[in-house]
Design a protein around this nucleic acid. Sequence first.
RNA 1: GCGCCCGUAGCUCAGCUGGAUAGAGCACUGGACUUCUAAUCCAAUGGUCGCAGGUUCGAAUCCUGCCGGGCGCGCCA
Length: 549
Amino acid sequence: MTPETLAEKVLSATRAAFEALDLDDAVLPTQTAVERPRDPKHGDYASNIALQTAKKAGTNPRALAEKIAEHLAATAGVAKVDIAGPGFLNITLDAAAAGEIAGKIVAAGTSYGTNNSMEGVYANLEFVSANPTGPIHAGGVRWAAMGDSLARVMRASGAKLTAEYYVNDAGAQVDHFAGSLLARAKGEPTPENGYVGEYIDDIAADVLKRRPDALEADDPFEVFKTAGLELMLEDIKSTLADFHTHFDVFFSEKSLHDRGELDKALERLAELGHVFEADGATWLRTTEFGDDKDRVLKNSKGAWTYFAADCAYYLDKRERGFEKLVLMLGADHHGYVGRMQAISQAFGDEPGTLEILIGQFVNLLKDGEPFRLSKRAGNMITLNDVVEAVGVDAARYAMTRNSADSTIDLDIDVWTKHSSDNPVYYVQYAHARTSGVLRNAAERGVEKGESYDAALLTHPRESDLLKALAEFPAVVATAADLREPHRIARYAEELAAAYHRFQHDCRVLPFPDEDTTPVNQARLWVVDATRVVLANALGLLGVSAPERM
RNA sequence: GCGCCCGUAGCUCAGCUGGAUAGAGCACUGGACUUCUAAUCCAAUGGUCGCAGGUUCGAAUCCUGCCGGGCGCGCCA
C-alpha cells in the first residue's frame, strides 16, 4: 500500500466516522496526507485528521479518532491503529501490504516517481541567462544546477516545459564587449567600460582565425561584435552542456528588436491604456500594478530601454503559448520582481501567470576572505573552473541540496581539497552498493524470481527502507509544486541512509554454503527497488548514478 | 528611508506550508570488518530554534515589533 492509497483510506474512514457520529461532513478536506513519524513507536504512518476536523465539527478529537480508528482498522492491509496524545492516529501496516511497493517500483523502473501533479501545464522556465559578454562565472553554477533540476522535476510531474536561456545580445554591454575585442586585436588599450581577461584575448584571436580579414572589413566593429558574440555563445553552450544543463531554446534579445517586437509590445500596451508620455520619454504606468515607480520604455532620446525588451520578451513567450512563465533570478535582481509582475498584469494576465523565483547568492571565499567576481576586472572563477576542480556531480549536488532562499558560503579551497566531504558520495555509494549486490547475485546465479513474498519483509530496517521508497513520488510532486529541487537531494540522502542501515543489518544474498531462501529473494527485490529510486532521484538532480565506486 | 531573503548544535545546513521528545552531515570521543565495497554502521557529546509579544488544543513554522547579516531601490544594461 502506498502512502497515497492509505491517505485515501484514512479520508474515507473519517467520512464513515462522521456519518456514524452524525457530524457535518462539510468540514472535511477533499484531500489528506499521512506522515511518516520519526519515532517508530508511532507506527508506520500517522494522521492528524481527527485533530484538524474535530473542532470544526464541534466534537472531541479523541472521540472522533476512536471512531475513525474503528473503521480504518477494518481496512485490508492495515494491521493496527492506535490513538495517541490528543488524537493522533498511528497506523501500522501489515508487512505484506508495506512490502508490495518494492515490486511496483521494479516494474515501473525509470518512470517510478513521475506523477501528474502538473499534468498538461505548458510552462516556460528561464534561468541562467548570463550576458554573452563573458564566460559563465562561478556564481552561475547555482542557477544552472538548480534550474536544470527544477526543469527535470517539473517534467517528471507532468509539466510540458521549455527550458530557456535569454541571450542579451543587444545593447551597450555588447558594444563594450565588441570594442574590447577590437582594441585587443589591434593591440590598443582596453576602452573605457571595456572588458579584460584572458578570454577577451582568446576570443579576439578566434575572431581573427574565423575572419582573417576582420580588421580590413568595412566595419570591423560589427564583424567583431557578431563573430565575438557567436564565439562567446558557443563557449557558454558547451560549458552548460558539459555541466549536463540542457536548454531547449536560446532566445536572442536582438531578434526581438530585428522583428519589431518592441514596437508591437508598446502598441499593445498603449491600446490597453497603460502607456503615457512625460519629460519627452515614453512610460509604462507600472505603479498601477503595484510597482514602486513607473518605468521608461523609450527614453527622451528615442532609444528603447532594456525594460521595453522585457515587455516584448514577455509578450513573445505568451504568444508562443506558455501559460506558466517561471523566471529564476539572482538576489541582485529581486528589485525586478515588481516591474516584471507589472508587465504581466499590464498585458491583462492573471496573477500567477508569471512566477519569479529569487535565489540567494553563493558567497565565494578564498582563504576565508570574500572573493569578488568581476568580468570587467577579469579576476573571475568560471563555471568551468569549478567543474574542473570538483567535477560535475559534486558541483551540481552541492548547489542543489540547499534551499534557494539561503545564501551559501563556499570556500574555494575547502571545496577543491575536501570534495570527498560532499554528501553526493554518500548517495552515490548507496547506489553503487545496490548495484554490487545485484551484480554478485547475477554472478552467483541467485535469482530474485518472478515474484516474492512481501510478508517476509519484517525487519525494522526493511520496514524503514520500504517506507522511504514509497515516499518518492510525493517528494517529487512537492519539489515540483514548491519549485524546490533541494527536496530531492535531501530525500536521496535519507533513502541512502535507510539503505546503508538495511545492508548493514540485513544479509541479502545467501552465504556461499547456503541455499537461496525466499527471504533472500524478497530482499533482492528491495535492493533492486532501492537501486531504481536512487538512480531516479540522482537523475532528477543531473547527477550520475555509478555502478561501482 | 523603503523592499526582498536569511538568523536552528563548534561549522555547513534540513525541518515535508501548525503536530508528538527540534534533525542530518562535518568536526570531536568510543566501539563494529575471516562472508554482499568500512566512501559503511552503532553509541556518546553538542540547542534560551536571534529577542519580545500575539494567534490556539499545539509555534522553529503563522502575525506584529525590535536586533543582526546579505542584496536591491537609474530615462544603466
